[in-house]
């Protein structure tokens, strides 16, 4: 992950900050899917996309800044 360049700037923010935002969006998708699943019994694909996206973002953001 260190070759990813998570700390280089992309536009106004570091890539790490963009991933924080992306994580937030995936959290929203997961919770929306979850609310659909618990209320209507439908919405599993949305929930799965949200959870996988969240886990991927946390995986990326777990990388420490490189030397």
């Amino acid at each position: 992950m260190s070759s990813f360049g998570l700390d280089r700037k992309l536009g106004p923010m570091r890539l790490r900050a963009w991933f924080l935002l992306l994580n937030f969006i995936f959290n929203g998708v997961a919770l929306y899917g979850l609310s659909r699943v618990t209320v209507e019994g439908a919405g599993w694909p949305i929930l799965v996309v949200g959870v996988i996206g969240t886990l991927a973002c946390i995986g990326v953001l777990s990388a420490p800044a490189k030397e």
Binding site: L20, N23, I58, S62, A63, A65
Partner: peptide
């Protein structure tokens, strides 16, 4: 932070 585990822990709370 130079620890993946530490960052994951912080990210779990942020999430």
């Amino acid at each position: 932070s130079k620890s993946r585990l530490w960052n994951v822990g912080v990210m779990v709370q942020v999430t």
